[in-house]
Amino acid sequence: MYEIRIHSRGGQGGVTAAKLLALAAFRDGKHATACPFYGAERRGAPVVSFVRIDDEPIKVYSQIHEPDLVIVLDTSIMDVVDVLDGLRADGEVLLNSAHPLPGCNGTCRYVDLTGIALAENLVIAGSPILNTPVLGALAKMGVVTLPSAEQAIREMFTDERNVKAARAAYEELKV
């Protein structure tokens, strides 16, 4: 089972990103679940979402304590949350960032999802949409296939710019 933990702030699209990722994996023919963990706080507070992908049906409902992959959609969270907590020894990290960040080395990848969203003018109520571009980056990392990523995005959104943004992230991410 491949376990992914997504860190974001409420309202940034982490929950939708998890759903999209599960849908893409599902379209790849895998079993997948996505589960947000909501705290009691209002909008803007850090939230985590969990995605599990497996060849077998998934029966686990508890939180992910030892992720294979950690995704950070808002790196400012790293000041308040230990996003690397429990990361497996061979685990990977994907940051929404234009630059590598100190303290996150090894298999730490970064891609400027915010920049990509802004370039595509994917903005709702002043916030850039991160949940569709991140799927392109995950396709590049081989978590899901690119066609399934695109299909998942089209199933959930009508605006083609989302697909374009995912492709841009696919191109930009270095693996």
Binding site: L23, A32, A34, C35, P36, F37, Y38, Y61
Partner: peptide, 12 residues
Amino acid sequence: LDGFALSHITQS
């Protein structure tokens, strides 16, 4: 159905 654990989980 269990709150959050099932109400909010996405499955097939």
